[in-house]
Design a protein around this nucleic acid. Structure first.
Length: 328
DNA sequence: GTCCGGATTT
DNA sequence: AAATCAGGAC
């Protein structure tokens, strides 16, 4: 089975089985796609959906987010985790609004230069929002490509040059499926989907009109998320099981730990920081948490003080004479 | 390589 | 209790 056949089979599976996430299928602006990707960093999609929906209704574009009070942004981030993502997203919004006239730049280099946007998110926006041909590499794609084409589990840590080369080698060429230039130029843009829906009537809302590289990225990532999972891959229902080197090899080392054991959460600074921030989010808007109340949040006053200082360093809180509050 | 949240699953 | 999750900054 050649590579083109695999991508076609995966694409068909994608079209029939893709989760109906609200930022997919051309329903979101490029900015909305970027927001969904930042929220999804190290966070399950099912948890992201309600946050994203409320967020985009409240701040539909970069300029709106840029002008929001920082305390509101932190509070709206709620319990998504890694609240520094919220601050970086707002910083990103400021840059987009001021330096790019509220229009997300369309090159990888400009995107990775934005706060909170690294290799994965920049590539994902280029592919999913702009329809450009670029290899997207996340934990799902690393796991799937390594299993299917190398027959082994991917190792943890930073993406290796070999993994990057594999992702680039397997990324379908856009001319293979006869994508015409007009479609290719507009693939992925919300405007294109709206227009083609009006013109096309019963036209599929899924991957038709997307470049093969975009469908490939989407379908490989989706396969890793729902079928080719880390611990218990559902090989019985996998659309490319017949082509999988990992399955042929007897799934050697299935679910083998890919990275060092995670730091336990209980008792860590992350837990303490989370407690402090949660207490501040509970307050009425603009209110201050009195020092004596803050001191009760954690027994170890040394650790608590260090965490309050680090939250201040991050710009997530403000330290006043009488207590703490979310930054204005 | 380490730190940074918190929900969910096993 | 431990692992996992559409990572990024340092």
């Amino acid at each position: 089975m050649n590579d083109t056949a695999i991508s076609l089979r995966l694409g068909a599976w994608w079209e029939a089985n893709a989760r109906d996430l609200p930022w997919r299928f051309g329903r979101a602006t490029p900015w909305g796609v970027l927001v969904s990707e930042v929220m999804s960093q190290q966070t399950q999609m099912s948890r992201v959906v309600p946050y994203w929906t409320d967020w985009m209704e409240r701040w539909p574009d970069a300029r709106a987010l840029a002008e929001a009070p920082k305390a509101e942004v932190i509070t709206a981030w709620g319990r998504l985790g890694y609240p520094r993502r919220a601050l970086r997203l707002q910083e990103c919004a400021r840059v987009v609004a001021e330096d790019y006239a509220d229009k997300l730049p369309r090159t990888y280099d400009e995107l990775t230069a934005l706060p909170g946007i690294g290799d994965y998110t920049a590539s994902a926006v280029m592919s999913f929002a702009f329809g450009e041909r670029i290899a997207v590499i996340d934990t799902n794609i690393r796991r799937v490509l390594s299993r299917v084409f190398l027959g082994v589990e991917s190792r943890g840590g930073a993406t290796s040059p070999a993994e990057r080369a594999l992702a680039n080698r397997m990324l379908p060429k856009d001319e293979i499926l006869g994508c015409d230039a007009d479609v290719a130029d507009n693939a992925g843009s919300a405007e294109h989907v709206v227009n083609s829906t009006i013109r096309g009537g019963k036209r599929s809302r899924l991957h038709r009109g997307e470049r093969p590289s975009v469908t490939w990225n989407q379908s490989v990532m989706e396969l890793g998320a729902v079928i080719c999972t880390a611990k218990s891959p559902l090989c019985d229902t996998c659309p490319i099981a017949d082509d999988c080197a990992f399955l042929k090899a007897g799934r050697p080392g299935l679910g083998e730990r890919r990275t060092r054991p995670r730091q336990r959460f209980q008792g860590t600074d992350r837990q303490v920081r989370g407690l402090v921030l949660a207490a501040l989010r509970e307050l009425p808007a603009g209110a201050t948490l009195p020092r004596e109340d803050a001191d009760k949040l954690w027994k170890d006053q040394i650790q608590l003080a260090a965490c309050i200082a680090s939250l201040d360093d991050d710009g997530l809180i403000e330290i006043l004479d009488g207590g703490l509050r979310l930054p204005s």
